[in-house]
Design a protein around this nucleic acid. Structure first.
Lengths: 175, 175
DNA sequence: GAAGATTGATACATCAATCTTC
DNA sequence: GAAGATTGATGTATCAATCTTC
């Protein structure tokens, strides 16, 4: 009954639905596993990874936001919950009081050290082990292209204001 | 600081993070758009699409669960919210009272008819327009492989009980 | 005023427990 | 007892509004 409105062709629809399904199932499985095995949510994991990758286990909330791509309020709520559970600690930054420093606690560090290897094992099992080296190459390229498109929207194909039309402003910059 | 635990190599890490980032940003953008333009969440949209694809705009809750991949409770909660907003209606199935029938209301139908073209336009703009035909081919194949792996776990590489080890049980069956 | 951050309200997701009908 | 579905509790995400400090 949706056929009378403009839609994707068969292949596009197949690819799009696969894209959604792969991600939904993969993240659902990974989140369940990490929750069961380490008592962490996927969101907890992301925050802890960011912090553990920083030299002192300390970052500004702003930087965690950059790393995770979350907005301020989501991050703030989540940090509150994590702080309440003793995984991180908030500390006022000495130089500029606006910036909230977030530091990894001992509990937080042991949580991520415990969780990471299991998590990686599942990412391997469910993602990388299903891919050939060629497919890995292709994905690297394709995702880079997709991210470039998302970072740098093309001249508006839709009815939205799209003031960003300077195509040589910033080089595509890989995460 | 995470380098002393087993991890992915550089390329794998890049691909994995891109995979997560692409999906996160794409779905976040799409959800925002569809919410703003049509007052629907991504979840609403999925349910409405399933229903609108069925001949009578009527499905059993069970079938919507299959289509969306959601579990019973999530679906039930969501259908309650949608029913409250007048997008769908629950009706007892005449033949077997266990099965709950869900029917599309007029409001639900016009909501999806209004939302779909805009949604598709954004999927094109942000996803398909960034891909070459070759990349589309590659993705179709790769996602099929990934789904096959998720449907049909390989003999356990991890410490989990994995009783499903009959590799010729069911042919990989594409959604 | 703008950037960084927080709060409160609401919607959504997940889990365990329950209920009903076959 | 098992399949389909619902409920309640808790955790998570999003939006708008606010607060503080530069």
């Amino acid at each position: 009954v949706v056929t009378d409105i403009s839609w994707l062709n068969d292949r596009e629809q197949r690819v799009w639905r696969s894209f959604l399904a792969v991600h939904a199932r993969l993240t659902a499985s990974l989140n369940r596993q990490i929750q069961r095995e380490a008592g962490l949510s996927g969101a907890d994991y992301q925050v802890l990874v960011s912090l553990s990758e920083s030299p002192a286990g300390r970052l500004r909330a702003y930087e965690i936001g950059e790393a995770t791509g979350w907005e301020k309020s989501r991050l703030s709520h989540h940090l509150s919950r994590m702080a309440q559970r003793g995984l991180v600690e908030r500390q006022a930054c000495t130089t500029d009081v606006r910036y909230a420093d977030v530091v990894l606690t001992e509990a937080g560090r042991s949580a991520i050290v415990n969780a990471a290897p299991r998590h990686v094992a599942h990412v391997r099992e469910w993602f990388f082990d299903a891919l050939t080296p060629e497919q890995l190459d292709q994905l690297e390229r394709t995702y880079a292209d997709l991210l470039a498109r998302l970072d740098h929207p093309s001249p508006c194909a839709t009815d939205f204001p799209c003031d960003e039309e300077n195509p040589d402003d910033q080089p595509p910059d890989l995460p």
